[in-house]
Computed example of a mutant assay.
Amino acid sequence: MAGRQDTPPKRASARGLRGAKSHHAGQAAEELVARFYERQGYQIAARRWRGGGAEIDLILRLGAMVVFVEVKHSATRDQAMARINAAQMQRMMASAAQFLAGEPAGQLTESRLDVAVVNGTGRVEVLENAYGQG
């Protein structure tokens, strides 16, 4: 076509690439953690469930118990742990309470909130009942 100019494809910004890399790393970490729990007999009830102002990465069942899991990934365990803060814990507990409201036993459902940390080598470490609730 006459007068048509081809424009070069847009390049992704460095920030956009970091964000995409982080998103995919987070999804990979969640998958590692899901498999870790499944090997121990847990069943996945939900992934990335949103309620009460926070997203819960994984919700699992083991018999009648419901386990809420926050997945953190970073190059090291300590870096991943440093990314957990009190406000985030409060939001996760509110979301967990909202989920439990839909359970037959409601808030009386046996439950716990775990934190699963995945380091740069893919090693999974689970801190059961990390928030001291349940």
Rank of each mutant, 00 (worst) to 15 (best):
Arg112Ser: 02
Val71Ala: 03
Met92Ile: 13
Glu38Phe: 02
Gly16Gln: 14
Arg18Met: 15
Ala101Gly: 15
Leu127Val: 11
Glu70Gly: 01
Gln5Pro: 00
Glu70Tyr: 00
Ile56Trp: 09
Gln107Arg: 11
Ile44Leu: 13
Leu62Met: 04
Glu70Ala: 12
Arg39Cys: 03
Asp57Val: 10
Arg11Ala: 06
Asp78Asn: 14
Gln40Val: 12
Leu60Trp: 10
Met65Glu: 13
Met65Cys: 10
Gln43Ala: 12
Ala75Tyr: 08
Pro9Gln: 13
Ala29Lys: 07
His23Lys: 15
Arg48Asp: 05
Arg47Phe: 08
Val118Pro: 05
Met1His: 04
Gln98Gly: 03
Ala25Arg: 04
Ser22Gly: 13
Asn119Ser: 08
Val69Pro: 03
Val126Gly: 01
Phe99Glu: 14
Gly63Ile: 05
Val66Lys: 07
Glu31Ile: 09
Ala130Asp: 00
Ala87Val: 15
Arg18Cys: 15
Ala25Val: 05
Ala34Glu: 02
Gln98Cys: 07
Val118Ser: 00
Trp49Arg: 12
Arg11Cys: 10
Pro8Gln: 15
Ile84Leu: 08
Gln98Val: 13
Pro8Asn: 13
Thr7Phe: 00
Gln90Lys: 14
Met89Val: 13
Ile44Gly: 04
Leu58Ser: 01
Gln107Met: 03
Gly41Gln: 06
Arg48Glu: 12
Phe99Ile: 05
Leu108Phe: 02
Tyr131Ala: 07
Asp114Gln: 05
Thr76Val: 07
Gly102Cys: 06
Gly106Tyr: 05
Glu31Leu: 10
Val67Arg: 02
Asn119Phe: 09
Thr76Pro: 08
Gln133Lys: 04
Met92Lys: 01
Gly132Gln: 09
Met92Phe: 00
Ala45Leu: 04
Gly51Gln: 09
Ala86Cys: 14
Val124Lys: 04
Val115Pro: 01
Ser22Gln: 15
Arg61Ala: 03
Val124Ala: 01
Asp57Met: 06
His24Thr: 15
Tyr131Val: 11
Ser22Ile: 07
Thr121Trp: 06
Phe36Met: 05
Ala46Phe: 02
Gln90His: 15
Tyr37Ser: 01
Ala86Pro: 15
Phe68Ile: 04
Arg91Gly: 12
Gly120Ser: 09
Ala80Pro: 11
Arg112His: 04
Asn129Gln: 06
Met65Pro: 03
Gln107Asn: 07
Val71Trp: 00
Met81Gln: 13
Ala96Gln: 00
Arg123Gln: 10
Gln5Ala: 07
Arg123Tyr: 00
Ala87Leu: 07
Tyr42His: 12
